[in-house]
């Protein structure tokens, strides 16, 4: 049993005016939780406070106490927020507390949302991106942390905030090119949140993104995040997959021990240690053939069959479906 961090409220004179409320008064509940005495005591006083509607500084202490024992107690968060607003508590102090709690309870929805509420009030996101970067060190794929960053950028939509995003992403990619959260963030920044100063030349942006993606595929071809991004860039910009046929083709072939190192920025070849053929490349090439139609459908079918029977047997049913679907389409 955890050691109590504070004396019980029931033993404190300054809380004697609050009537604590038992959780279950008339019911013998099923599926109850064996709480510690400390938690039971704190939440009983909290229920008493909610009932009386009191909003005061001591409510901030009480809700912080409960949150530290159970950061998912959304009612404590909600009541805390209303109390902060009601007594006009200093929000910079609150944000400092949140700096500590967010890192401590990284996986909780509420810590991030509370932060968002406070920032919406203060309208001062200046140190927010640095804070997020720091939190990502603890957990590089934390869903809430990444969404929070995206919210900060799009909600405040301040050019100064956006400016550093690609550099920030470079550091993330340098750590782990397989971090899908970073790839998603890149798509969010580059394509889905409006066009900002310096990015107006969309053709140049698309070229840059294609070069970036191809290069990363060449380092580690079996990285589904990079292939999904490549698909995303082409689809979003309504470019046919055949734009990158020359690049994709070598990745669909077995490793070539004779290959010589050559620098080709447009079509970087697979690294020497690449494990080929790469199923994602085969799928990609099959999609190219399928969109060509006619005779090429046969080539697409052969590739799907090689995925079904050899390179990606777990998805056999899906590849067979693709074959069937393309034949149905082809015959109508």
């Amino acid at each position: 049993m955890a050691k109590p961090t504070k004396p019980l409220y029931s033993s404190l004179d300054e809380w004697v005016d609050v009537q604590p409320l038992e959780q279950y008064e008339k019911v013998n509940p099923l599926a109850p939780i064996f709480y510690t005495d400390e938690y039971k005591d704190a939440t009983s006083y909290f229920r008493g406070i909610v009932k009386s509607g009191e909003m005061s500084p001591r409510v901030l202490d009480l809700t912080e106490h409960i949150i530290r024992l159970n950061p998912a107690h959304y009612t404590a968060w909600q009541y805390r927020y209303r109390t902060l607003m009601s007594i006009k508590a200093p929000l910079d102090v609150e944000l400092k507390l949140m700096d500590e709690l967010a890192v401590k309870y990284l996986k909780t929805y509420q810590v991030w949302h509370h932060r968002r509420l406070i920032l919406t009030e203060t309208r001062d996101p200046q140190r927010e991106l640095a804070f997020v970067e720091e939190s990502l060190r603890e957990d590089t794929k934390n869903y809430h942390t990444w969404s929070h960053r995206q919210w900060v950028l799009s909600h405040f939509n301040d050019i100064d905030l956006w400016r550093g995003e690609l550099d920030f992403l470079d550091t993330m990619f340098n750590q782990d090119i397989r971090n899908n959260s970073a790839w998603h963030h890149r798509f969010f920044v580059v394509f889905q949140s409006g066009v900002r100063e310096g990015e107006e030349d969309r053709e140049r942006v698309v070229r840059r993104e294609l070069t970036f993606t191809k290069q990363n595929i060449s380092f580690a071809p079996n990285n589904p995040s990079a292939w999904n991004y490549l698909r995303g860039v082409l689809e979003f910009n309504k470019l046919p997959f055949s734009t990158v046929t020359t690049f994709v083709f070598p990745y669909t072939q077995p490793t070539d021990p004779e290959a010589v190192d050559l620098v080709d920025l447009d079509n970087p070849p697979p690294s020497k240690q690449a494990e080929l053929p790469c199923p994602a490349a085969i799928e990609f090439l099959a999609d190219i053939y399928e969109s060509e139609g006619g005779e090429s459908l046969l080539k697409a079918n052969q590739l799907w069959k090689s995925l079904a029977d050899e390179h990606d047997t777990m998805r056999k049913r899906y590849w067979e479906y693709r074959i069937k679907e393309s034949l149905q389409k082809g015959s109508t």
């Binding site: 939780i33 709480y35 159970n70 998912a72």
Partner: peptide, 17 residues
């Protein structure tokens, strides 16, 4: 868990009863 109750570590699920 249903009849006897959930151990204390389920306090994190107190708001998810």
């Amino acid at each position: 868990n249903f009849i006897q109750g959930f151990p204390a570590k389920y306090t994190s699920q107190d708001a998810s009863q």
